[in-house]
């Protein structure tokens, strides 16, 4: 559920097919740099209506982002 939403937002941003975005996909492979990852995270905050603090988390893969969002939604 979270993965689907995340994949959809990423796909819209970089104009690709959402089904190609998997948990293990690295942002770097998608041509998304580390600041763009935060831009994505901030759109997720609006999408999920919650503030998501990084608290030192490193976001390298889609799974890292999904995990962080899940931890805040619980």
């Amino acid at each position: 559920m979270v993965l689907e939403k995340v994949a959809k937002i990423i796909a819209e941003r970089i104009d690709c097919d959402a089904s190609t975005i998997q948990n293990e996909t690295k942002f770097e492979e998608l041509g998304i740099d580390s600041l763009e990852v935060i831009e994505l995270l901030m759109s997720m905050e609006e999408e999920f209506g919650t503030e998501i603090e990084l608290e030192g988390t490193k976001l390298t893969t889609v799974a890292d982002l999904v995990q962080l969002i899940k931890s805040k939604l619980q």
Binding site: L35, V37, I38, L41, M42, L54, G56
Partner: peptide
């Protein structure tokens, strides 16, 4: 500097 944290904080 932690670039990602700084970016988010600043925006």
């Amino acid at each position: 500097m932690n670039g990602q944290e700084t970016f988010k904080f600043a925006v």
